[in-house]
């Protein structure tokens, strides 16, 4: 009975859940502010959700985990910066950013897809380095892009974008605060969760369309798809583009919850968290469901959010906090990557 239950959830998830429960127990015993932690978990779940969802079309179309979501993230950041440069605030601002990010990321995704179609079999390694290269290239880009707003550029040079750009006064937490309410002292970021749910729903609908089904077939068995008359390269291209668009939208949603656009080196390692999350959720490099995204993001973000204060309390010396943060988050990512083969 227990065994069949474990089999159904999958052993890795059982391990992570047990680990999470232990952390929660530790946090409780340490007297951490549990309602604040819960709020944090919910917010981080919502803000990272769409970035994790970006893994789905990539896995479905057979290019594997998209380690190159930095391509989409850059597109999202450029659009977001533009909205601020124009001085747009509130819903107008964020909707402008999202709408503009789509054509940008379609173009970027198209080029990225072209490359992935040329390197069949090693998409994940190539994707990782595409991400690194694009981020590095944009370090120059951020310096030379012709944005002028004083909130964006360095105050003395009057040119070159700052490292972090605050959204305070523009659209900080606009989704988080929409219809948000309190249960005890826990704040529910209703709007944020709704946006994530909407994105998941659209993805779910897409996966059941003619194109979605064809894409799934390509990801499952290339040769079957060829024999079934499906244009394999087109499907892979489409999957890559959708993944890139989702990561562009994802970073904007992420930024409004976080309160800042982070430029330069910040997007460098952003791919690893969604990759780890979707793997923890039960996906493999060629099989994924929307439920894997939801469960995975929740588990991964809960782990990170709770592990840090707990670890800090155990080793309060200043320098160790940062070290333990790296150990915990990279440790979880490493564990998740070992699960990439899926359950046998």
């Amino acid at each position: 009975m227990v065994k069949s239950y474990i089999e159904k959830i999958g052993l890795p998830r059982v391990i992570i859940i047990v680990f999470l429960l232990l952390l929660i127990l530790a946090a409780f015993l340490q007297g951490q502010n549990m309602s604040m932690l819960t709020t944090d978990v919910l917010v981080r779940f919502g803000m990272n959700g769409i970035l994790t969802l970006a893994m789905v079309p990539a896995i479905l179309c057979g290019t594997g985990l998209n380690f190159g979501i930095a391509v989409g993230i850059i597109a999202g950041l450029v659009s977001g910066i533009w909205s601020i440069d124009l001085g747009l605030t509130g819903l107008t601002g964020i909707m402008f950013a999202i709408c503009v990010s789509v054509p940008f990321s379609v173009v970027f995704g198209y080029l990225y897809g072209k490359l992935l179609n040329a390197v069949k079999g090693s998409e994940m390694v190539v994707g990782t380095y595409v991400g690194y290269s694009v981020v590095s290239l944009m370090c120059i880009g951020w310096l030379v892009l012709p944005f002028k707003s004083p909130t964006l550029v360095w105050p003395i040079a009057k040119a070159g974008l700052r490292n972090t750009i605050t959204l305070d006064g523009y659209y900080e937490k606009i989704f988080n605060n929409f219809l948000s309410f309190q249960i005890g002292s826990v704040t529910i970021p209703t709007g944020l969760l709704l946006v994530f749910a909407l994105a998941c729903f659209i993805m779910f609908i897409f996966s059941r369309t003619k194109t979605g089904i064809a894409m799934k077939a390509v990801g499952d068995n290339n040769m079957y798809a060829v024999a079934a008359g499906i244009n394999v390269n087109k499907m892979r291209m489409l999957g890559t583009i959708i993944s890139t668009v989702l990561s562009a939208v994802g970073i904007i949603v992420y930024a409004q919850a976080f309160g800042f656009y982070q430029l330069y080196q910040a997007p460098l390692n952003m791919a690893f968290m969604p990759v780890a999350a979707v793997l923890l959720g039960g996906a493999s490099t060629n099989k994924v469901k929307i439920s894997h995204v939801v469960i995975g993001t929740l588990l991964f973000q809960a782990l990170i959010t709770i592990a840090l204060p707990v670890a800090n309390q155990i080793a309060p010396e200043g320098g160790l906090a940062e070290v333990s943060r790296l150990i915990v988050s990279n440790g979880i990512i490493l564990y998740a990557l070992t699960q990439s083969g899926g359950k046998k």
Partner: peptide
């Protein structure tokens, strides 16, 4: 297995 089926589906 190589061409005929979508094994995971």
């Amino acid at each position: 297995r190589g061409v005929g089926l979508l094994l995971g589906m």
